[in-house]
Design a protein around this nucleic acid. Structure first.
Lengths: 198, 198
DNA sequence: GATATAATTAGATATATATCTAAACTATAT
DNA sequence: ATATAGTTTAGATATATATCTAATTATATC
């Protein structure tokens, strides 16, 4: 069942040693003993935690001679987070069912919610459509550029006056990354994809 | 430390009963007995799970007669997910490693501006120190609780008579969120962090 | 007050798991 | 073949926690 996968994902992350382990790996691959030393744990304990993380597919490993190097499996870390939110907020999914099947939903949203001058008439209430609108706007941001909060507000306002809501949605659905009032576009593989919403 | 909050977030979600509970709440608020029945659990067990979720600020509750209605706290559910990813994919790494060099400033502010009984002698004029003082007070508010303006005033007055100024500072620096005279603690990742002030 | 209803707390139990030491395994080097 | 280094497995222990029943608390109604 899907539930168990989500539970295992969170179990894997529900331990300080494992979170610190992942944090270490985010800076590059490491072998078992190095992890044991940095985490101040015995080697068997590292093996134990690595097994849990491997079961949840959060790390990969590669063997070289008799040394095993561990590294992150970032796609699965993001996917679990996404699946988890999707599971809890499944209500939005149901609402989608009673939608008349549109040949090209994306085109329909772009046509109906955006004016010819690009202005967003209103923020779609339906989850899937909202994601399409958000993605359309996010695609017009420059990858790699650091934006101030003010710049983001101005950018959003060319589409819609309620920049606060849209800015928040950008963060929630991982279109952007925020830290200390500085915003940066995430790579598309991190975005919540409307195509995957049932 | 921030690590524990993230661990608690995942612990809260690392149980099938709690995930199903959240899923039920995503369709609308429910009271304890209804949850017990739908989840096929005893009422005390529901209380147990609700407490875990409340500690992680993932649900809110409201009392009507002697019935307690639970509902989701979606902002915090998203915020935890976000904070977790942010933590693993570093940038937050530096924040974790340092900790000690600057913590002396924090201790110094807590020692010099706060009396032993917790009273704030005076509001620090220096920006960085003011943030430390604000954060110290904000940390004593309950996540997920909705406070009336009056309650906030009373809360602040236990530290300092000038509750109006401090209340405004709470909002300005994103320690709290205000809407229609109702106040709620923001998740720490939204706070203006003194650690990042030059 | 007395009573009824919903929720919480207390206490018990069983299961899960984080951690360690010691032993076993695996691949390379001598 | 033997030794060495890294990892994993086994077994033990201590702590955490999910669940229940029974008792207590909190609120509302009579």
């Amino acid at each position: 069942m899907q539930l168990d996968k989500i539970v295992n994902y969170h179990k894997a992350l529900a331990d300080p040693a494992r979170l610190r382990l992942l944090l270490l790996l985010s800076k590059g691959e490491l072998h078992g003993q190095a992890l044991a030393e940095k985490l101040n744990l015995s080697q068997p304990t590292v093996t134990h935690h690595a097994a849990k993380l491997r079961e949840a597919a959060l790390i990969k490993e590669r063997r070289e001679k008799n040394t095993v190097y561990f590294s992150l499996n970032p796609e699965f870390i993001y996917a679990g987070s996404e699946a988890s939110l999707k599971f809890i907020f499944a209500k939005g999914a149901e609402e989608l069912e009673q939608e008349s099947p549109e040949s090209s939903l994306k085109e329909s949203v772009l046509r109906n919610f955006f004016a010819k001058d690009g202005h967003l008439r209103q923020i779609p209430a339906q989850y899937k459509k909202k994601l399409i609108a958000l993605q359309h706007m996010a695609e017009q941001l420059e990858p790699g550029v650091i934006y101030s909060e003010k710049e983001i507000n101005v950018f959003i306002q060319q589409f819609h006056e309620d920049y606060a809501t849209i800015r928040r949605e950008f963060i929630m659905h991982h279109f952007m990354y925020r830290e200390n009032e500085r915003y940066e576009l995430n790579p598309p593989e991190m975005w919540t994809r409307w195509e995957n919403v049932k």
